Simulated assay, not measured.
Amino acid sequence: MFLIFGLRTRVTRSAVVQQVCRHCGHQAAQVLTRRSTKFSLFFIPLIPVRTRHIQQCTFCAAEYPVDRAEAEHLMAA
């Protein structure tokens, strides 16, 4: 009997907001993405392992993590 298991990460774009970049200091569009990693068994995602929110500047392409509360605030705005 074979067991096929692993981790699968799914990336979804949550929002695009205009903000000043923390890295370069320019006013530019910031893309907020959600990366959720799930444990999968026989190619079926079952158990969520980790969820991260990442904000990326479209001017300098710098990425930095955003906590959940700030991500929800940015999506509501």
Rank of each mutant, 00 (worst) to 15 (best):
G25Q: 09
T12C: 13
T33F: 01
L41P: 08
D67A: 07
F43G: 00
T12Y: 10
V49S: 02
V16C: 07
V11Q: 11
T58I: 07
T58Y: 03
T58N: 05
F59L: 09
A69K: 06
F39E: 04
C24D: 06
G25A: 13
F43M: 11
F2Y: 11
A71I: 01
R35M: 12
H26G: 01
Q19V: 01
A15G: 08
L46G: 03
L32C: 07
H53M: 07
A71K: 00
L32S: 04
F43T: 04
F5W: 14
R68T: 11
I54C: 00
A69G: 05
H53C: 08
Q56R: 09
F39R: 01
G25E: 11
V11N: 14
R34Q: 07
H73I: 01
I54L: 06
R68F: 03
I47R: 10
R50P: 06
T37P: 08
A28V: 09
L41I: 06
V20E: 12
L7D: 14
Q56T: 07
H26C: 07
I44D: 06
L3D: 15
Q55D: 11
F2V: 15
I4C: 14
F59D: 12
P48W: 01
Y64M: 05
I44F: 08
L74T: 02
T51Y: 02
E63H: 04
T33R: 00
R35I: 09
F59H: 07
A61S: 05
S36R: 10
S40I: 04
V17E: 08
G6T: 06
L3H: 15
V16I: 13
T33M: 03
I4T: 15
A76D: 09
I4F: 14
C21E: 12
L32P: 10
S40E: 11
A71C: 07
L7I: 09
H26W: 08
F5Q: 14
R35L: 08
L7N: 13
R22K: 12
R8S: 15
C60S: 07
D67I: 04
S14G: 03
V66L: 03
C24W: 02
E70A: 05
R22F: 08
I4L: 13
A29W: 07
C57I: 04
R22M: 13
T33P: 09
Q30F: 08
M75P: 09
T12H: 10
Y64Q: 11
C24Y: 10
V16S: 07
D67H: 05
R22Y: 11
R13S: 13
Y64V: 04
A61V: 05
E70G: 00
A61T: 02
R34M: 02
Q55C: 15
R34W: 01
L46V: 13
Y64I: 00
D67K: 02
R50T: 09
D67T: 03
Q27K: 14
P48L: 00
C24S: 06
F43K: 04
T12W: 07
E72W: 01
Q30D: 09
C57S: 04
I44A: 06
